[in-house]
Design a protein around this nucleic acid. Structure first.
Lengths: 180, 180
DNA sequence: TATGACATGTAACTAGTTACATGATTCA
DNA sequence: TGAATCATGTAACTAGTTACATGTCATA
């Protein structure tokens, strides 16, 4: 029941896995699908990293194998220690705000290329945002939202993505117009 | 004059350094100050990583030592090969969109804690955004913008930060209201 | 029977973090 | 002369990426 000591503030993949297993037991393969789909807009993870982390989580006693299936399938479930660690992270650890926005980094340096290239770049950012906006609208419309926690908080994340896309598109349009 | 071969799409720190040195020659220490200040909202870098990367850039011929000063200070300048690499990155390499938003990741899992804790968390995201909004407004007002490239593109980046902060604050206020 | 989806794993690498270590110069 | 700032570097680590490697099961 007691939380494993852990002074590190990072390791969000670890907590992403714990959070998904809190919903219900899953295999590494199942988790991978989640990271490739819904999760990909929020936290990226590769197959290799995922299986590695599952091993570490099991060794740390935060998850355990709950059932084995065909083809070597191992379904993991979260343990009480894992749940404690997840809650601790959600409540006590302040989010680390290490910012890395490659698209925006380029904008700083657009003076190094011809104005036409700069405008093209900004317009392509706008196009990308527009496409993303459309995809998220479609996704939202296709989901039958309920009033359970997963729906409420899932919708919040989706709403964030939609608002972000709109903001990015509008900014890119404005910025392209600023290029002389 | 010809670009160094480089199939990797990442290495943005490398390009951030090249972009800053394109403005004018600087030492590692100067660059560090830039990364700690204006740059910190776009691309984070530690002192250790910076000096390591400067060594690699020099070895690759993309920068060279232009002047030495007291206390072992080494001022670097960008070479023609470095400028070519910077332009190549700006124009030809599409931005990699690996998303990792720790604050948003938590929102997915807020169902694991009491609604009051969840609301507190969302409100704290709103507060953070509001403070950031204020800081960026102040910064904008304090800068004497010109119509040179550095001003035009610097203002674009700042404008993005302001719009992002507004979006994040409004979303967080809405989201906090969604918690039952 | 062959293809594709299911399923897990490892090796070698690059990027990024934390902590330590050292010394020079300025200025109160 | 002591503290702050300037200035560079290294060692040990964690996180993340790419590529490879292997084998199972369902079904067309």
């Amino acid at each position: 029941m007691s939380r494993v000591e852990c002074q590190d503030e990072g390791m969000s993949l670890r907590h992403a896995i714990l959070g998904l297993l809190e919903e219900h037991p899953m295999s590494g393969y199942d988790l991978l699908k989640r990271f490739e789909q819904a999760m990909s807009n929020v936290w990226a993870a590769t197959q290799s990293q995922l299986y590695g982390e599952l091993g570490k989580l099991e060794a740390a006693g935060l998850i355990r194998v709950h059932a084995e299936g065909p083809r070597g399938r191992k379904e993991y479930e979260i343990t009480d220690a894992g749940r404690a660690e997840l809650r601790h992270w959600l409540v006590d650890v302040e989010p680390n705000r290490v910012t890395r926005n490659e698209a925006l980094l380029r904008v700083y340096f657009l003076g190094a290329v011809a104005p036409e290239r700069a405008r093209e770049y900004l317009e392509s950012l706008g196009d990308t945002a527009r496409r993303r906006e459309g995809r998220l609208e479609d996704l939202d419309a296709s989901i039958d939202w309920g009033d359970d926690d997963a729906s409420v908080y899932g919708r919040m994340v989706l709403e964030w993505g939609k608002r972000f896309s709109v903001m990015q598109r509008e900014w890119a349009e404005w910025a392209a117009g600023q290029v002389k």
